[in-house]
Amino acid sequence: MSWLNRVRQSIPFLPKRETSDVLWHKCPQCEAMVFTKEFEENLSVCPRCGHHGRIGPKKRFDLLFDPGWETLSPPQTREDPLKFRDSKRYTDRIKAARSATGEQDALINARGAVEGRRAVIGVQDFAFMGGSMGLGVGAAFLEGARAAIAERVPYIVFTAAGGARMQEGILSLMQMPRTTVAIAELKEAGLPYIVVLTDPTTGGVTASYAMLGDVQIAEPGALIGFAGQRVIESTIREKLPEGFQRAEYLLEHGMIDMVVPRAELRHRLAQLVEYLQPRDSAA
């Protein structure tokens, strides 16, 4: 044993203190260190630069609904229809995602009131396999739309996805026309369909229900697009503009209707519902 090892072993190191609370949050945009409590109290928005962090369905519902909201039961769908396996079995990936998020799949619906106006809201959870769209997401979207039709209320969807779920192949792509039909049913019933695009919304989700709303809203700085920026640049062999595929760029070029900070979303949605479905027509 060398003298260095003997010295190191003789020093009484204190055990590392374990804590369940992470005291600091590092903003991915400005890299400022913010107290986690301050970050959460600010609705998971950086108080220094305004970067909007990703949040899950339960927190989103708490921010939007009046007290007393309830989640809709997730629909049962066939799991692993293609018996897919890459470095892991698909069933193992699903189990890990459910264990980490506590949710059945990437889209969760709930019913409740937004400033006194009834609505059904669906929220995609990017933490569940990147919010990818598969059979479960398609079925949940259909259930949410039909629940809204049954209750004669608007359907509001918060998107966050990397696109279709590759482990389900063509079946995941079939959710694009399936969700489009559900939106057509909403329109036929004369009910508002509002989309809030959050970071990130890409791929097949953008190519289907994410861009078919009566009103298109986005959170500040949200990444919104179909293909990735590097793929586009390599295809067209041109450098893309600064901020391309960000919410503010899309607003400037007419792709979306408004960019609304998270703190103002609840009131803005209530205003839109009141405008699109006045109380007398809802009754």
Rank of each mutant, 00 (worst) to 15 (best):
Glu103Asp: 10
Ala270Gln: 04
Gly131Arg: 00
Val273Tyr: 00
Ile256Thr: 04
Asp280Asn: 10
Ile108Val: 14
Gly254Thr: 15
Phe65His: 07
Glu274Pro: 00
Cys46Val: 09
Gly136Tyr: 00
Gly112Val: 02
Glu168Lys: 00
Asn5His: 14
Arg178Phe: 06
Gly131Val: 06
Leu43Ser: 09
Leu265Val: 07
Thr71Val: 10
His25Pro: 05
Ala247Trp: 01
Gly144Ile: 09
Ala247Lys: 00
Arg262Leu: 06
Arg262Lys: 14
His52Trp: 09
Arg85Ile: 08
Glu103Tyr: 15
Glu168His: 00
Glu168Asp: 07
Met166Cys: 13
Arg89Gln: 03
Ala218Ile: 14
Lys83Asp: 13
Val259Ser: 05
Asp214Cys: 07
Val114Leu: 12
Lys187Val: 10
Cys27Pro: 04
Ala100Ser: 14
Thr201Tyr: 03
Lys88Asp: 09
Ser99Ala: 15
Met255Lys: 12
Tyr193Thr: 00
Met174Ser: 07
Leu272Cys: 07
Leu63Trp: 08
Thr77Gly: 01
Lys26Ala: 12
Ile11Leu: 11
Pro278Asp: 06
Gln9Arg: 13
Pro261Gly: 06
Val114Cys: 03
Ser2Arg: 08
Val123Phe: 12
Arg6Ala: 13
Leu142Asn: 02
Ala148Asn: 04
Gly221Val: 02
Glu151Trp: 00
Asp214Lys: 07
Gly243Asp: 03
Gly254Met: 08
Ser172Val: 14
Phe39His: 09
His267Pro: 11
Ala182Asp: 07
Thr180Ser: 14
Ala160His: 02
Gly50Asn: 02
Pro47Tyr: 09
Phe141Val: 02
Met166Thr: 15
Gly134Thr: 11
Pro192Phe: 05
Arg146Val: 14
